[in-house]
């Protein structure tokens, strides 16, 4: 089967293609929406070239190199916390996953799997309940926000010393990127930021770039990265065993429960934006 062409909504997005720390003089190859790209760094910054050798637009933001195959309206979604001087901004790793980027985002938005997949860290039996939470569209419909998500976590972050009910806020400001805010064990008034930036390499594969902006004055970068990779490594086999590998948008295709409110909104939002890439559109 020939790879599908990206729909206009997907085509005109900025996408991450590498952590900035992994961009060097020596060119490296990657793939975006099925198109092979080359990226490298020279005296003036990061460069990206497309399959036909043309220079592609570049953004260096949120610890990642971003590019586009289309014409995005404006820049990236804001993450104001990223500029706060006392935060640690860390690219924790870029992992390839053999499933659609939308499946990856949906898993990132799901709390129900914590006790089973991240046992002893982000959840624990018998604390399996996903309590009622809110989800809504904001920014004129450009962004999904889920608030008041509470979940019992034995070890919510690298600086946790005991279990606690942790509050989550999820943002989905981009079809393959999500930003998660969770209570900081270091400062009860502030939130740690954990972002999953999805690079759709094909309709059924993506690279997940994990970027953190957190309050942690204790641990070294490699331990913080270790913690994130440990969690993402637990998700990987679950994701890669999902069938179908593209996210079905027909509400009847998979049976959601109340805990899946964010996912229901996400699928609806993708459909309303005319997304066909990486998903199975609902029959007209």
């Amino acid at each position: 089967m020939a790879d599908p062409l990206p729909d206009p909504f997907m085509l005109n997005q900025w996408f991450p293609i590498s952590a900035l720390q992994d961009v060097h003089d020596r060119p490296r190859r990657t793939t975006l929406l099925g198109e092979p790209l080359v990226y490298f760094r020279d005296g003036s910054g990061c460069r990206v070239t497309g399959a036909d050798g043309r220079a592609l637009p570049v953004l260096e933001q949120y610890a990642c190199l971003w590019t586009t195959l289309g014409r995005p309206e404006g820049g990236l979604f804001p993450i104001p916390e990223y500029d706060e001087p006392d935060r640690r901004n860390i690219a924790a790793g870029s992992i390839g996953v053999n499933v659609s980027a939308m499946r990856g985002i949906e898993n990132f938005l799901d709390m129900g799997h914590f006790p089973y997949v991240h046992t002893g860290i982000l959840g624990e039996l018998p604390h399996t309940e996903v309590k009622e939470y809110n989800v809504e569209l904001r920014e004129g419909g450009r962004e999904i926000v889920a608030t008041e998500c509470l979940f019992y976590q034995p070890r919510a972050s690298t600086v946790s010393t005991s279990g606690a009910d942790v509050e989550y806020v999820y943002r989905v400001p981009h079809p393959t990127c999500s930003v998660l805010y969770k209570s900081s064990p270091m400062d009860t008034r502030r939130l740690d930021v954990i972002a999953l930036f999805g690079q759709p390499t094909g309709p059924e594969s993506f690279r997940g770039h994990m970027v953190l902006s957190i309050l942690d004055d204790v641990n070294a970068d490699d331990f913080i990265s270790y913690f994130q990779l440990h969690i993402f490594g637990q998700d990987k086999p679950i994701l890669e065993n999902q069938m179908p590998k593209r996210l079905p948008l027909d509400p009847r295709a998979e049976t959601p429960i109340r805990a899946d409110k964010t996912s229901i909104m996400y699928r609806r939002w993708l459909a309303s934006n005319g997304v066909t890439y990486g998903v199975i559109p609902a029959a007209a």
């Binding site: 006790p115 046992t119 990779l229 440990h230 993402f232 490594g233 990987k236 086999p237």
Partner: peptide, 12 residues
């Protein structure tokens, strides 16, 4: 280890 689950899910 990450990527490998116990025989009984949630037990480790």
């Amino acid at each position: 280890m990450p990527g490998i689950f116990p025989a009984v899910l949630g037990s480790q």
